[in-house]
Write a protein that binds this DNA or RNA. Structure first.
Lengths: 335, 335
DNA sequence: TTGTATGCGTTATCAA
DNA sequence: TTGATAACGCATACAA
């Protein structure tokens, strides 16, 4: 249980100055090959490894990106996080992750802690409660610090930061166009995120489509409580004529899927289902759900690219808002 | 984009020494109330917050726990991670997470990076490949450092560290006892983790049960490739008489569930399914899968308790190996 | 070629 | 009551 060896100790043991050791280990041309060799060999022998904390202080850089996500159990966020980590690694960055569990309080705390010089940049997806309570002060507070911030997925006009998100409007219209073409006229929109920005945008797109196509009978079912949403879905699918369900998030989509299964309905014949889920989700169930691919890999990659850019170049005045094009992946659950 | 303000700058602005500022902010009794008030007010005004990196260097403590897990997309690990994070927070610790994607290489790199003074302790679940290649040198290397390490879930005799895991043997026997009692005699064990310690232990328990109960016809299907395992399951369930499937991990269980659904078989009537899945997994599907609850919350909590203990008390010679008792949760998929 | 001094932001010890 | 100085571990400009 020996404490990690430091440059000073190596210097002492070798009878040289600690700057000689430092230079040797960094392969400085100032030092003779002979000394370098001696130092390096001893350092290797003792398992020397530079203390990252000291380096961070010295360089005022932590090589760490902070990530704040609402819920790791949500497979969309899990997938984005995974890809953020992979991509950050390739840039030589680590990630420190905070989960807010969709609460404002934990989000505020996370932002506060991470703005104390622990990270070089921040990738954040705001919590449900943040939108519900329309509290964005903690974000504005961090805008005055020099830590670059990037928002992903749940972008909002109140959050004046760079961002990566998907084409909510277009994706809904594409899905509805598809369902319409296949004959669906009674369509349900299900949402477990009525307050969140993306939930609102997707709902607006749905409403627009209904207005533009009066022959379509649209129903919106939304509740952030799963039990409530599930019974709403159950009642609707049990008592009304429903040709298709469009789920704006993983929760609502999986609930719809379960309800269809509970009611013994068959996909393709009786009903269609399209949702904002992902491959990972789809691997678990049968039949596969048709889905709007949000390309979480791309979101993660672009998020890291953008934040690393900001870390290196520094903040610019202009906001950079990336929008990822989704695609519709048709599976067994949609005719 | 002002850089965060430091004690020195406050001292300069206020015309006092920086040690006075430090003491004031720490409410030292040495400083007059008047000065303290002045300093605190100005610090608050300028949004001063102590630099955590400097504190870490000063205190040789990072208040950070490193977590290394094989795959965040696996909902068991996601659940454990979530609970590690929640519990660590309550102790005032952050977590920095590395994902190995079940590879030895990324595990080695993660251990190497995290042993450079970045964390006060390490919670690790080794990768599949580590077991496959029986390479544990990188773990032994870190044993010589002063960073405490704790292994969770995939414990192994080659890994001489404290650990938290579940009662693999007992849980399998309980599940088999249950199935046996309900009349199952043709039982399939499915595993997507044949090389991993827990996979092996669960398989051994299964084999023991078969030996002890010769009237039971046991079949073991294992492959770490999902496609392969899926077709093995398909063939077995399609051509042979199978009363029950026991999945030793989430992958194999979800594959079995999908195959049953593909073959149009009905649970309770024709076949039973029990697996090492969790609530989170079960919420997504219908009908619910009977499962062996490994209590990921407990695993996360105990892991943090143990590592925080070791960080504070220091390493002891005796190994502490916690074993969590699982329970069997019977759902619609098992008669 | 090697050694000394400085600073990154803190806290703590000691001096004034 | 306040201030100066050292130390945490490192890299680097400067001195020898």
């Amino acid at each position: 249980m020996n404490k990690p060896i430091t440059i000073k100790e190596i210097a002492r043991d070798l009878g040289v100055s600690f700057s000689t050791v430092s230079k040797s280990l960094n392969d400085s041309s100032e030092i003779s090959e002979k000394t370098k060799k001696k130092v390096k060999e001893y350092a290797a022998l003792r398992g020397y490894t530079p203390n990252q904390i000291a380096l961070s202080l010295k360089n005022s850089a932590t090589y760490t990106i902070g990530v704040i996500i609402p819920d790791i159990q949500n497979s969309f966020f899990a997938s984005v996080l995974k890809n953020i980590e992979i991509h950050a690694k390739s840039y030589g960055y680590r990630i420190v992750t905070f989960f807010t569990n969709e609460t404002l309080k934990e989000e505020e705390e996370s932002l506060k802690i991470l703005s104390k010089g622990l990270v070089d940049g921040l990738i954040v997806c705001p919590s449900d409660e943040t939108f519900k309570k329309k509290k964005f002060d903690h974000f504005n507070a961090i805008k005055n610090m020099n830590t670059p911030v990037l928002i992903f997925d749940r972008v909002d006009d109140n959050l004046e930061f760079d961002s990566v998100s998907v084409d909510d409007y277009k994706s809904i219209i594409s899905a509805l166009d598809y369902l319409y073409e296949k004959g669906a006229r009674d369509i349900v929109l299900a949402s477990a995120i009525p307050d969140v920005s993306v939930g609102k945008k997707r709902k607006e797109a749905f409403e627009k489509f209904i207005t533009d196509n009066p022959e379509v009978n649209g129903t919106i079912l939304e509740a952030d409580d799963n039990t409530v949403l599930k019974s709403m879905l159950y009642e609707a699918l049990d008592t009304k004529k429903v040709d298709a369900v469009l789920g704006v998030d993983i929760e609502s989509t999986s609930l719809a899927n379960a309800v269809v299964s509970m009611l013994g309905k068959t996909y393709k014949e009786e009903i269609s289902l399209i949702g904002y889920v992902n491959k990972q989700f789809n691997r678990l169930i049968h039949p596969r759900v048709s889905y709007i691919n949000q390309y979480p890999e791309k979101i993660g990659q672009i998020a890291v690219d953008m934040i690393v850019d900001k870390i290196k170049i520094g903040n610019s005045k202009l906001l950079n808002k990336e929008v990822i094009e989704t695609t519709l992946a048709i599976k067994d659950t949609s005719r």
